[in-house]
């Protein structure tokens, strides 16, 4: 376990010295700054009297700032979930292929680190890095909206943890794919495909209903069963961000399923890794 954490920490330390981290945090800062400068919220006595984005009037209804913020948080959570997922899939696509690059993997494998520790450590390292990015973004947004409206809500922060869970499944697939084809574009493609599949899986019953009854429909329906319900997680994240009630049982099953799927993908990667020659 100690070695696993050492690998994760090593990856984190190395990443912090790369331009990649500057890019990640720079992009988040840029989005926050742009929002901060362009979003005008006219708050009068705790009520939102109007809101403008880039000078365009979004709404001039007078509503409670808390209620208005709930809608904003929900929209931001959806945007952050899907937009963030796409951004991170692209940004993290070369970590695993880089790990397996000739000259590096032989050296790492000559060190007293088991292959599975290297795999899980890399996974945890990337997730650690992404967590820091997500936390930075969520704290920044919470502060931005808090300063502008006077309403300080932890919803976005809590909702972002669900976003991290969704990315955990995506990255597990990306990492796994790298052990079959060592390519950043294949890794990124696998992540993007997984994101799409995860949304499709969230509406499995309805969407497979569109197929003609028969073998194909049955196969597709069963193939989607273990796929994490990323669409469902996005909704969960948005509801938490908006401080709306969620079904606890459903939420825990979605989260547990997503976690189990991630570990399954990593176990598959470990199977492949253990058999590989470099």
């Amino acid at each position: 376990m100690r070695q696993l954490l050492r690998v994760a920490l090593d990856l984190l330390l190395e990443a912090t010295r790369r331009r990649w981290v500057l890019g990640l945090f720079g992009s988040i800062t840029l989005v926050l700054t742009a929002l901060g400068l362009s979003l005008e919220l006219d708050v009068v006595d705790g009520a939102l009297a109007g809101s403008k984005l880039f000078g365009v009037l979004l709404s001039d209804d007078v509503v409670s700032a808390h209620r208005a913020l709930s809608g904003v948080s929900q929209a931001v959570a959806y945007l952050a979930f899907y937009g963030g997922a796409v951004f991170l899939v692209v940004a993290c696509s070369d970590f695993a292929p880089e790990l397996l690059s000739p000259g590096r993997i032989e050296h790492l494998l000559s060190l007293p680190v088991a292959r599975w520790q290297l795999l899980f450590g890399t996974y945890l390292g990337v997730l650690g890095l992404v967590s820091a990015g997500i936390l930075y973004g969520a704290v920044g947004l919470t502060a931005l909206l808090g300063v502008k409206t006077g309403v300080w809500s932890p919803g976005l922060l809590l909702g972002s943890t669900v976003g991290l869970l969704g990315f955990a499944a995506l990255y597990a697939v990306m990492l796994c794919s790298a052990f079959f084809v060592r390519s950043a574009s294949v890794s990124g493609g696998a992540g993007a495909a997984m994101l799409g599949l995860g949304v499709v899986a969230s509406y499995r019953e309805s969407l497979t209903g569109l197929l003609e009854p028969g073998l194909v429909r049955t196969l597709v329906s069963w193939a989607l069963v273990p796929v994490p319900r990323l669409g469902g997680l996005a909704t969960m994240s948005a509801r938490i961000a908006a401080e709306q009630a969620i079904d606890g049982a459903v939420a825990s099953r979605l989260a547990a399923g997503c976690g189990l799927f991630s570990v399954a993908a990593l176990a598959l990667a470990a199977w492949r890794f253990e058999r590989m020659d470099f």
């Binding site: 070695q3 690998v7 090593d10 330390l13 190395e14 010295r17 000739p102 000259g103 060190l111 007293p112």
Partner: peptide, 27 residues
């Protein structure tokens, strides 16, 4: 101790940082 034929070293690190990283993984 192993020195591969073509060693791929992390370009962003300094020699000291790299050595510390290897030392950490060596325990």
């Amino acid at each position: 101790g192993y020195l591969p034929e073509r060693m791929h070293l992390p370009a962003a690190l300094s020699a000291r940082q790299f050595l510390r990283s290897v030392a950490t993984l060596k325990g």
